[in-house]
């Protein structure tokens, strides 16, 4: 879903870059003040995994492929705001080192593939684990749905930006963007659930958003008055 340069007008690209930059800046503040020292390497490791997984295009229908975006996965592992930073690191490296995704479109790509999915899935799942007595399986199922939803929201945002830029009418681009990403989102859900299942089985204490019963709350992702 990487938008290359030339698809968006400068105005639309700038308008998308503002909330993207804001979310990443907020994430960096979290990294500075609210990240437990022993979890410092996690952001880079998660970003590295997302980069690797994004190279693995899988075929969907009719000569089209898709790959993991990873925003929902990052959000569960790191929390929504650090996830925005991790996704921005991946997308920036892709744009400048691999010429994948535009430079002027970088803000839009961070918004569409990172921020919207990370914040949407992250806040949704954080609320779910707070309100519901979720077991491991139910949590993973919800995470899969969140991952699918994150891809769909990203596709919606991309279509809107293309429409606003006058590149293609929204009514023309929206239906195919949503239908192809509905399939790609299934792959996203599968990879997200598999990766989360593996980490939850081995080191649940390192997962920022997880079912309440799964491990003692060691790491403050949420505001908690209780001592750990």
């Amino acid at each position: 879903m990487h938008i290359p340069d030339g698809f968006l007008t400068p105005g639309v690209a700038a308008a998308a870059a503002v909330p993207a930059a804001g979310a990443v800046a907020y994430g960096l503040r979290h990294a500075r003040s609210r990240l437990d020292e022993r979890r410092v390497p996690l952001l880079g490791l998660t970003a590295a995994f997302v980069f690797a997984a994004q190279m693995l295009n899988f075929p969907v229908a009719g000569g089209t492929s898709g790959h993991l975006l990873g925003a929902a996965l990052c959000a569960v592992l790191l929390g929504p705001w650090l996830a925005c930073v991790a996704m921005a690191v991946v997308l920036t490296a892709q744009a400048f080192l691999f010429a994948d995704g535009g430079v002027t479109a970088l803000g839009a790509n961070v918004l569409n593939m990172g921020v919207i999915g990370a914040v949407g899935a992250g806040l949704g799942l954080a609320l779910a684990v707070r309100l519901l007595p979720l077991g491991r399986t139910a949590f993973l199922a919800l995470a899969g749905i969140a991952a699918w939803g994150a891809v769909m929201l990203g596709a919606l945002a991309t279509a809107i930006q293309l429409g606003l830029s006058g590149t293609v009418p929204l009514g023309v681009v929206l239906p195919p963007m949503l239908s192809v990403h509905a399939l790609i989102g299934v792959g996203e859900a599968v990879v997200t659930v598999a990766a989360l299942g593996a980490v939850l089985a081995t080191r649940p204490d390192l997962v920022a958003i997880r079912p309440r019963g799964l491990a003692p709350l060691v790491v403050p992702t949420a505001v908690s008055g209780r001592a750990s």
């Binding site: 879903m1 089209t64 492929s65 898709g66 430079v103 681009v173 192809v180």
Partner: peptide
Amino acid sequence: ASSSPDGLERVADDHGFAGQGGLH
């Protein structure tokens, strides 16, 4: 990995705006 166009590339090809993209 599959070398087929991804979702956005496919839609851009099908709807004739792929050519507007370029490298910075």
